[in-house]
Design a protein around this nucleic acid. Structure first.
Lengths: 115, 115
DNA sequence: TCCTTATTTCGCCAAATGACGAAATGATAA
DNA sequence: TTATCATTTCGTCATTTGGCGAAATAAGGA
């Protein structure tokens, strides 16, 4: 029960849903997400830790970057059911489409450390 | 997006999940739910309004009681996907089983106005 | 080694949340 | 009509949440 509540809490924020929908495109580092969402790095880092604790995403340190990607969903039963639903949801939401367009072109070597 | 966040917020509380799992058994009035959850009537009423606003439940006034029941799920796309998932989840959770056992025997004419 | 860079953690603040009791509402029963 | 009962609304309070900037970490490059 506590786990299920944690999972729904993780989804109960629009910025975290935006992150999940961005990660459906490809793995991203913190500063790429920061660039798209226009939030501070510390705020994005917090959102990512909430999503990670809930099992939606996993992180992998590569050099000075941490790449975040969607979980396979095989580890957590609830996540395995919810991520496919989310994948089909919000297909026409303007904000999500614009986020994803930015994800397509963002370059971590250019956005990180500048804006 | 706003609607989806509202829906996840509605599920992001253990007492509201308990209510949904109780309503899987049968429709209930506020005071029956109050009796099982051991919360104040005003708190339960608030939880029910959040679930109703999100589309999970509907209410029907019958005499002096208001019967709450699970939505068919045909009205709201998200709810229609999530309620069936919830129906399969937490099948062995002790708290849910105990709530449901109470639902089986609770009598609104006995519990309302006393406890 | 020293400096830069990406990320996380910490401390703070404003707003939202979940709880309660008291008061208001609406319907039944006397 | 008057009293009772189920429910909702209101005001309050403690806790949680989501945001920020500053400081701490950790890795890379000069």
């Amino acid at each position: 029960m506590r786990e299920l509540v944690k999972i729904f809490k993780a989804l109960a924020d629009s910025n975290r849903i935006r992150i999940i929908k961005m990660l459906e495109i490809r793995p991203l580092c913190v500063c790429e997400i920061t660039d798209v969402l226009q939030l501070s790095a510390s705020t994005v880092s917090k959102h990512l830790s909430i999503l990670r604790e809930a099992g939606f995403i996993s992180d992998e340190k590569v050099g000075k970057w941490v790449n975040y990607s969607l979980s396979s969903g095989q580890l957590n039963h609830y996540v395995g059911s919810l991520l496919p639903l989310l994948k089909n949801w919000l297909p026409d939401e303007a904000l999500i489409l614009s986020d994803r367009a930015k994800v397509q072109v963002v370059d971590r070597n250019k956005v990180c450390g500048i804006g």
